[in-house]
C-alpha cells in the first residue's frame, strides 16, 4: 500500500475516480460512458504510441489521468468523434511538442485549450467535491514540492481580481489548481521557477478573463504558462537537482 501511494499518480487517479463516482448520481448514463471512453481511448493511444516508439509496454498512468481530466471537463453531450479526437491530442502533444526531452504542455490542458479555442463547451462536470480536492490536492502539492506554484498563482490571482471587486474565491477552480496547475513535468521544479510559473498562470488568467472572455480563462492561462517553460528553464534554483526532488515517503 505504501509503495502504491508513493507514486503520486496513483493518488491522483484515486482522487479523479472518487470525484467521478461522486458526480455520477447528478449526471446521466452518457457521462459514465463518456468518461470511461476518454480514459480508455487516452490509455490505448498512449500504449500504442509507446509500444511503437519505445518498443515496450508501459502502464499508461499519466494517460489515465489525462483521460479523466479531458473527458471530465469536456462537455459530454458532444458527438463521440470529438472524444476520439480530443483524447488523442494530449498523447500527441506529449510526444510531439518536446523541449529538452520533456513535453512543454500539460497534455490534458493542451487538448482542452484547443477545445475552448474551437468553442467546444467545457462544463467541468468532474469537479464534484471541492473539500476533497483541496485536502488531497494540498497533500499532493506538498509531496511534489509544488507549493511555490500555488503561492505564485494565488498571490496574483487574488490580488488582481480584488482590484476588479470580483470575489476571486468564487471564480477559482480547485480542480484546476490542485490537479492541472501542479502537473509535475510541465510546471518546473524549485521555488523560483515555481513562483514564476504560478505567477505567469495567475496573471494570464486575469488578463484572459478581463480582455478575451468567451474562452476558458484558466485553461488558456495554463497554456500560456506552459509556453513560458523554455524561458523558466533558465531560472537557476539553488542546489538544483537535490533539494527539489519530490519528498520521500
Amino acid at each position: 500500500m505504501t509503495v502504491f501511494l508513493s507514486d503520486k499518480r496513483n493518488i491522483v487517479i484515486l482522487l479523479l475516480g472518487t470525484l467521478f463516482l461522486i458526480k455520477i448520481p447528478q449526471e446521466n448514463s452518457r457521462f459514465i460512458f463518456w468518461v470511461f471512453g476518454g480514459v480508455l481511448l487516452a490509455s490505448f493511444y498512449d500504449l500504442f504510441i509507446t509500444a511503437m516508439l519505445k518498443k515496450r509496454w508501459i502502464v499508461p498512468k499519466s494517460a489515465v489521468i489525462s483521460g479523466f481530466i479531458l473527458s471530465g471537463v469536456l462537455d459530454y453531450y458532444q458527438p463521440w468523434f470529438v472524444l476520439v479526437i480530443f483524447s488523442l491530442l494530449p498523447i500527441l502533444s506529449k510526444y510531439v511538442l518536446v523541449f529538452k526531452n520533456k513535453h512543454i504542455f500539460n497534455p490534458a490542458n493542451f487538448s482542452l485549450a484547443v477545445a475552448t479555442l474551437f468553442k467546444i463547451p467545457l462544463t467541468w462536470s468532474i469537479e464534484s467535491n471541492a473539500c476533497l480536492i483541496i485536502i488531497v490536492g494540498l497533500y499532493i502539492a506538498y509531496s511534489l514540492r509544488k507549493m511555490p506554484h500555488l503561492i505564485g498563482f494565488f498571490v496574483f490571482f487574488i490580488g488582481l481580481f480584488l482590484t476588479q471587486t470580483t470575489n476571486p474565491f468564487s471564480l477559482v477552480s480547485w480542480f484546476f489548481v490542485f490537479i492541472m496547475l501542479i502537473e509535475p513535468k510541465t510546471s518546473g521544479f524549485g521555488w523560483r521557477r515555481g513562483l514564476a510559473f504560478g505567477s505567469v498562470a495567475g496573471i494570464s488568467s486575469f488578463l484572459i478573463f478581463k480582455f478575451i472572455s468567451g474562452y476558458d480563462f484558466l485553461v488558456c492561462a495554463l497554456l500560456v504558462a506552459n509556453l513560458f517553460n523554455p524561458v523558466l528553464e533558465k531560472i537557476k534554483n539553488p542546489a538544483e537537482g537535490k533539494r527539489y526532488l519530490p519528498r520521500e515517503q
Partner: peptide, 13 residues
C-alpha cells in the same frame, strides 16, 4: 441550459 464559459467554482452545477 448550461453555462459554456467557466465562471467559477459552481460552474459545473
Amino acid at each position: 441550459i448550461r453555462c459554456s464559459v467557466f465562471c467559477g467554482s459552481g460552474h459545473s452545477r
